[in-house]
Computed example of a mutant assay.
Amino acid sequence: MKEKKGIILTGAVVGIIAVLLVKFGNPQNMGFCIACFIRDISGALGFHRAAVVQYLRPEVMGLVLGAFLMAYGNKEFNSKGGSSPFTRFILGIIVMIGALIFLGCPLRMVLRIAGGDLNAIVGLVGFVLGIGLGIVFLNKGFNLKRSYRLSMAEGFAFPIVNVLLIILLLTAPTLLFFSEKGPGSMSAPILLSLAAGLIVGSLAQRTRLCMVGGIRDLILFKDTYLISGFITIILFALIGNIALGYFKLGFASQPVAHGDALWNFLGMVLCGWGSVLLGGCPLRQLILAGEGNTDSAIAVIGMLVGAAIAHNFKLASSPKGPTPQGQIAVIICFVILGLIAYLNSEMATHKKKGDVSIG
């Protein structure tokens, strides 16, 4: 019961902070969005040139460093990696493409629900289905193999990169690209955003907050621990949105969203399925990377590259809806996900052994 109180408190804090970040400048229903923020960082570093989504989001660096400080302080920092790194890199790309088709990660999905965006309900249905597909392969023995203990320097590398990004933002912003209009131009003050990330990152590390894990555990084990955190996020963000006048119920004209139900659904199926295979949602990957898990750091780099691919090749959706290129990309990604899921499961392993014995 004590642990349950901890994740409920975390959910309340995340919901309140998300709304406050909007009040102080972030785009509406985007107090936190891991996919959107990594996309903005990709643009700020010049990896893509979509002028409306370029900003070095301090929230992301705060999440990583908050998790690092909490893990290190509690002697939970563990430098490890080597579990199918290139596969994880590809999965990171795919998860990002799915999220940018929907226009939001799982965390933003629940924040959109709390803001009255009914398109996010469609996304949630797809997300649950995607997690269900992932569970099917988990039950068939899907495994990206074990990770190995690495040097402390390897585990420190990703948090150090995030420190350097903060220094770059504060001391040499002219080296970066910044949006002058659109979502990338809308941001809370740097120190407030960084503090928000540090608080949420530390709490998420302690409670293992993860949307994918919450739904997965509910389906597999009837365990409501993780999902209770996200229910609390919705509740407190809803209260905050109503109090500040941000709540708007409906499908049409929602902020940084589109109303194409099919592709909202399929985008989140892709995001949910890929996240299960990775072992956690984009938020969880950032937290694990802060704890020293280089496999998760590789997944985050995959998301960074995925954002660049999505915008350089016009795969990402806009408020007008998905692009034809994006729709084709989703279909291709489903094929790739299916191959990754099958080839890393016991089904493929048993078949290979059977073929050898017959020969």
Results as ranks from 00 to 15, higher is better:
C281Q: 10
F313D: 02
G321A: 10
H311E: 14
I298Q: 03
G279N: 09
G274V: 07
I301M: 14
G326H: 05
G274Q: 07
Q285L: 15
A289D: 06
Q325K: 12
A310Q: 03
G290M: 10
L286V: 13
L286G: 09
C281W: 00
N293T: 07
N312Q: 14
G280K: 01
N293M: 11
V300N: 04
S317F: 04
A289N: 06
L315Y: 13
L277N: 00
I301F: 14
S296F: 08
V276E: 01
G326R: 06
K320S: 14
T294M: 14
T323C: 10
D295S: 14
G306M: 02
G326C: 04
V305D: 04
A316S: 15
M303N: 03
H311Q: 14
L288Q: 13
L283Y: 08
F313E: 03
I328F: 10
L283H: 06
G302C: 08
V300P: 05
L278T: 07
G326V: 00
P282Q: 10
F313G: 01
I309Q: 03
I298G: 01
Q285A: 15
A299R: 08
G326M: 08
N293S: 13
V300Q: 07
L278E: 07
L278W: 12
L283E: 06
G326D: 07
Q285H: 04
P322G: 04
G279P: 09
G292Q: 08
E291Q: 15
H311I: 04
R284L: 07
L315A: 01
Q285T: 14
A299E: 05
L286K: 12
Q327I: 15
A289T: 04
F313S: 08
D295C: 13
G321R: 09
A308N: 02
G306H: 05
L315E: 00
D295P: 11
N312L: 12
Q327L: 05
S275R: 04
G302I: 08
P322M: 06
D295M: 11
L283Q: 06
P319T: 13
I298E: 00
V305M: 11
Q285F: 01
R284N: 15
T294R: 12
P282K: 12
K320C: 07
G321H: 05
G302K: 07
G292N: 04
G302L: 06
L288G: 00
P322S: 10
V276S: 02
G279C: 11
A310N: 03
H311W: 11
I328N: 07
I309T: 02
S275G: 13
G292H: 06
N312K: 13
G306W: 03
K320M: 14
G306Y: 09
P282M: 05
E291G: 10
K314M: 08
Q325Y: 14
H311G: 01
P282W: 12
D295W: 03
S296D: 04
G274T: 07
L286H: 08
S317W: 06
L278N: 07
E291S: 15
A307I: 02
D295A: 10
T323Q: 05
M303D: 01
